[in-house]
Write a protein that binds this DNA or RNA. Structure first.
Lengths: 187, 187
DNA sequence: ACCTGAACACCGTTCAAGT
DNA sequence: ACCTGAACACCGTTCAAGT
């Protein structure tokens, strides 16, 4: 029997994640310190560090589910053959990043496996969607998954710094018109 | 007579700026702490804070000249009527931001007058250039100065996080093709 | 007028001591 | 097996004391 996880440990872990989620939402990911999270959860700092080896692991736990959903969404859009699949996926990514201030930076600089791994998974799903979209003509033939991912994250970051959600939409529109096939001119 | 600035004060200030410049270049703007800069310059922390009320003011001193040059460049390109003026200006901005790791974030989040003011000056010059470029057809008619500024900074930020200078060029190419007038289709 | 450096509250991180 | 909380080195920032 390996089920040696104690009840108080499970409770503490749940409390920590919930405290992190709230603090991230209130003050942003960057401004929320590990000690703050622990205090908010009512445990000592050591307990937080025992459950999560670093801040990125904590972020991964808080936003991981959403990242998984984005990966699923990419596959769904591809399977459904939506003609504006990539466009819709990038909107979803934009919306997700907007849910916590500082998340764009966290994702872009992810170095811990727990966070970076989940990013990779959703980026692979995006790559498949992009591949498909080049076939349907939604995207120019030379556009890659990383192109789309980087530009969308960049737009989210810029909009967070200035302009807010409206700016995000505006900038994504501009970027996207560059990724789209030019209007074909019949001779 | 108002020239009450002591010789040692002038020397200390120069040393501080030089120390900051080097430290920013070595470890990046974010990782360079104020205490590090003071130590490196061989003065006490208090002396640094006396000369610069906050870190942004120090950054402004280090990169201010380059920002001023970017403003001048915008006006020159406009005066010269270069057909690819905006494109060349954005390349210059990209290159400038690449000179210190973390500079994109510093510029985007500038809140202190000493830094934000210099950003505004160069953005106003860019706005004039963009206005002109819409006339020549380099840019779509609805593209604004802030559009160009935000997207270029965003690209610089993304490339810093992953991909480096080549990625920066690639992403800027993609973005720019979205800002450019569509190839006109004669009926 | 300017510099010094000790001081304060804080942060990330660790670890001996407990149960 | 897990939690606690003191502890360390650090950071941003201030300020009394010096010259």
């Amino acid at each position: 029997m390996e089920q040696a996880v104690r009840a108080d440990a499970r409770r503490n872990r749940a409390r920590l994640v919930e405290a992190a989620r709230r603090l991230f939402a209130e003050v942003g990911i960057e401004a929320a310190s590990m000690n703050d999270v622990a205090r908010r959860a009512g445990v000592g700092p050591g307990t937080l560090w025992r459950h999560f080896p670093n801040k990125e692991a904590l972020i991964a736990e808080v936003v991981g589910e959403s990242l998984d959903e984005l990966a699923e969404l990419a596959d769904e859009l591809r399977a459904a053959g939506a003609p504006d699949g990539v466009r819709r996926w990038t909107s979803a990514l934009l919306q997700h990043i907007a849910s916590y201030r500082g998340l764009a930076a966290s994702l872009a600089h992810a170095s811990d496996d727990l966070l970076a791994g989940r990013c990779v998974a959703s980026e692979q799903a995006l790559a498949r969607l992009v591949e498909h979209a080049r076939g349907t003509g939604e995207l120019r033939a030379d556009v890659t998954g990383p192109d789309v991912s980087r530009l969308t994250t960049a737009v989210a970051w810029a909009a967070e710094a200035a302009g807010g959600p409206q700016a995000a939409k505006r900038l994504l529109d501009l970027v996207f018109s560059g990724l789209t096939d030019r209007a074909e001119c019949p001779p």
